[in-house]
Computed example of a mutant assay.
Amino acid sequence: MAKSQQTFNKSEKEKKRLKKRDEKRKKMEARKIEKEQNDGSDNIPFAYVDQFGNLTDTPPDPADKIKVKAKNIVIGVPKQEDMDEEEFDPIRKGKVSFYDNSKGFGFIIDIEDQEKYFCHVSNLIDPIEENDKVEFELEKGPRGLNAVRVKVI
Rank of each mutant, 00 (worst) to 15 (best):
K16V: 12
K16E: 14
R17M: 13
L18P: 02
L18R: 15
K20W: 14
K24D: 08
R25V: 11
K26F: 11
K27F: 11
E29C: 09
R31D: 11
K32C: 02
K35M: 02
Q37Y: 00
N38I: 06
N38E: 02
N38C: 02
D39R: 07
D42P: 04
D42C: 11
D42I: 06
P45A: 10
P45R: 07
V49P: 09
N54Y: 04
D57L: 07
D61M: 01
D64R: 12
K65R: 14
I66K: 09
A70L: 00
K71H: 07
N72C: 04
I73W: 00
I73E: 06
I75S: 04
K79V: 08
Q80Y: 01
Q80M: 01
E81A: 14
E81G: 12
E81V: 15
M83F: 13
E85F: 02
E85R: 04
F88Y: 00
D89C: 08
D89S: 14
I91L: 13
I91G: 07
K93C: 13
K95E: 08
K95Y: 01
S97D: 05
D100L: 11
N101D: 11
S102N: 10
K103W: 00
G104K: 03
G104Y: 12
F107N: 10
I108M: 05
I108P: 00
I109M: 12
E112N: 10
D113Y: 08
D113R: 14
K116S: 15
K116D: 15
Y117L: 10
H120C: 13
V121S: 11
S122D: 13
I128Q: 10
E129F: 07
E130A: 15
N131I: 11
V134P: 04
E135A: 14
F136E: 08
F136T: 06
L138G: 05
L138A: 04
K140Q: 05
P142G: 13
G144P: 07
